[in-house]
Design a protein around this nucleic acid. Structure first.
Length: 264
DNA sequence: ATGGCGCCGTTTCGGCGA
């Protein structure tokens, strides 16, 4: 009997501020796992009690003001790990990476750097994180055939994932040719597949909408949040949904939840 | 679409993110 497994990713840009929206969304969509990024809360202040009261367990790693990732599920996420195990120095001082197992599926939750500008040290750090990501995921995929690598990759994959023509978008961080190459190399070398593109080739499906642009261009976003599926899971994808209605709520995150449904 | 919003904190503006 096939089981439906639903895993969502959502960069919430402050979990404490967004907690009511997160709880409402969880109640409505009942995922098996929700991967959060930019929780922006140190562990001592993580709203674990409020989540538990609503029936959601959490594994998390955070820091004051910036970064922070968490995995929520109906049962305690199993065997949580934090940072890149194959290269711990790549994530020192940056709560951007964690993994845990839910219902037999290994989940690697990523908040990769945005990069700021091509001449910024943050861009070099972004490149270094992508370089560390590929061997990490390759090792994980060997250990865990059922693997989902999901989160905020901060790179649009191709011309369908940006709101202007590709030549213009390539001038911007998150779609420079170098960054497109990092994402392509990650997929080619790790063997993981972008869940959405296994089943849908439409342009204009977005996961992030700039705060500054939204009022004048509410339909112009970027797709920078993904679920990457291991070879064993890729054939099992049934649906990928982008919950753009959340972007129109009062005091929203600039990212929307993205959920993959697998028939295990 | 090339302006400029929204988060945080030893907070009330500056640093940061996208």
């Amino acid at each position: 009997m096939p089981t439906l497994f639903k895993a969502a990713t959502w960069n919430v840009n402050s979990l404490r501020l967004r907690l009511p929206q997160v709880l409402q969304w969880l109640t409505e969509y009942q995922p098996d796992a929700l991967l959060l990024q930019e929780t922006k809360v140190e562990d001592a202040l993580f709203p674990h009690a409020e989540l538990l009261q609503a029936g959601w367990h959490a594994a998390f790693t955070g820091q004051k003001s910036y970064n922070g990732v968490a995995i929520l599920a109906r049962t305690p996420p199993a065997n949580p790990t934090y940072g890149f195990l194959s290269n711990p120095s790549a994530t020192v001082g940056q709560a951007r990476v964690m993994a845990a197992t839910v219902a037999g599926v290994r989940l690697l939750n990523l908040y990769l750097p945005q990069g700021e500008a091509t001449d910024s040290p943050k861009f070099a750090y972004k490149e270094a994180m992508y370089a560390a990501l590929t061997p990490e995921v390759t090792a994980l995929a060997t250990e865990y055939p059922q693997l989902i690598v999901a989160g905020d990759f901060n790179i649009a994959a191709d011309a369908r994932d940006v709101p202007v023509d590709a030549k213009r978008a390539e001038k911007q961080v998150m779609f420079t040719p170098a960054e497109q190459g990092w994402l392509q190399n990650f997929q080619a070398q790790s063997g993981l597949r972008d869940a959405l593109r296994l089943i849908n080739q439409d342009a204009g499906i977005y996961s992030w909408y700039d705060y500054r642009m939204y009022a004048r261009a509410p339909h112009h976003g970027w797709r920078i949040d993904y679920h990457m599926l291991s070879p064993a899971l890729a054939p099992k994808v049934k649906q990928v949904t982008h919950h753009t209605a959340v972007r129109a709520l009062v005091q929203p995150s600039d990212h929307v939840p993205v959920m993959v449904e697998l028939e295990l």
